[in-house]
Design a protein around this nucleic acid. Structure first.
Lengths: 211, 211
DNA sequence: GTCTATAGGGGGATAGAC
DNA sequence: GTCTATCCCCCTATAGAC
């Protein structure tokens, strides 16, 4: 069955935004890729900005919902204790890292987009940060529960470092394989998830640096 | 003494690129900010692309040179043993994180630019990756020497995670203070360096994840 | 070296026919 | 809902006077 024009536009925009950047992608390029008419974007999304927001909204909500669900399950299983650190980290990183093997949820294209998102100019970021509000709050509380010896400042920094490792990996795309001389294989997201979780968990558990 | 037109253009471009993004910044905005004529960019740098490359070249070479120098010193001090892990990490992260307090070397503007660089579209990245070639090679070897139990694949991934934490922090700018509710203070780069080093060093030393 | 003026192209958005 | 045609703006780059 054929895909709706609206979805073809979203798919084309997602792909081209990820490959060339948002500002670098013209509506003309998008409508050509989607085999739609130039005016279709304005009809369906009112403007380029409307299209951009729609591209992100379509994917972000499910990912963040999945994160919250996984965290909830982990918390219920461990109750009344807090869930182990590694499980919290996996609940956060997993849904994002697994994107690459779910073409029906954007696959590698959206993964690169989301990785790049964090370093976009501030105008774009503001819209998106609201989407992460609840996720940040819930996970922050979960981290505090298993790491009671870390103050909020230190904890926030470590959370930030984790997001950096994740975003950088997501944004890297196939480039990573090239610069590593073939050492880094991204085709298995579960393997990447295990590596990243091990690294990040150790970082969270690190001794406080000497002041 | 007044500053050269060429430098005013580089400074203006650096600032505006960091604030709004490269593609989003027009030569008109740059020449206005620099109080120079529109044609000046083409006269001094031949094209917008020439200006972009000049903006990066001016700052990247000194940073990477400093990294190599710090690594060399650490290696000489520790010889014939490899330098401790923390010193290698500090040699890599320090020159980048300290940028923010050196206005004469671009300060916070270039810091945000360099952080964003890694997630720019591939066209920009290719030019830049060559600049990092030697740094990557030397540091990779240094890491291998102190962490002989890690295979090249695992080591490359951890190197990658470290770069992610650094780039994400650099790109975040003042946003970080807002979203952390004031918890994260970026005004002291040495404190950030200590935090990041502690986190990353623990990550490097983490046990291998179960396959 | 620095300016004005302009060429020449591409962009987003919209009106109005179908 | 979809198309064509077009408006109007802003962009980069350059020619040529000073």
């Amino acid at each position: 069955m054929p895909i709706d024009t609206q979805d073809r536009l979203l798919n084309a925009a997602e792909k081209l935004f990820a490959e060339h950047g948002i500002s670098e992608t013209s509506l003309r390029a998008i409508t050509t890729e989607a085999q739609a008419n130039l005016a279709a974007v304005n009809y369906h999304f009112h403007s380029k900005e409307g299209l951009i927001k729609a591209v992100f909204a379509r994917r972000l909500e499910p990912i963040n919902q999945q994160r919250l669900d996984l965290l909830t399950v982990a918390e219920q299983q461990a109750a009344p204790n807090p869930p182990p650190l590694e499980e919290i980290i996996t609940a956060f990183l997993g849904p994002a890292l697994r994107l690459s093997i779910h073409p029906e949820h954007g696959g590698p294209h959206f993964m690169r987009l989301i990785g790049r998102l964090f370093s976009e100019p501030s105008e774009f970021k503001m819209v998106i940060h609201e989407q992460f509000e609840e996720v940040r709050r819930r996970f922050f509380a979960a981290f505090q529960a298993v790491l009671p010896n870390l103050g909020p400042e230190e904890l926030f920094w470590r959370f930030h470092f984790m997001v950096g490792a994740m975003a950088h990996t997501a944004a890297a795309g196939e480039i990573l394989e090239h610069i590593s001389g073939g050492h880094c294989d991204q085709s298995d997201p579960e393997a990447t998830l295990r590596r990243m979780t091990a690294f990040v968990a150790a970082g969270f558990k690190a001794d406080l640096p000497a002041a």
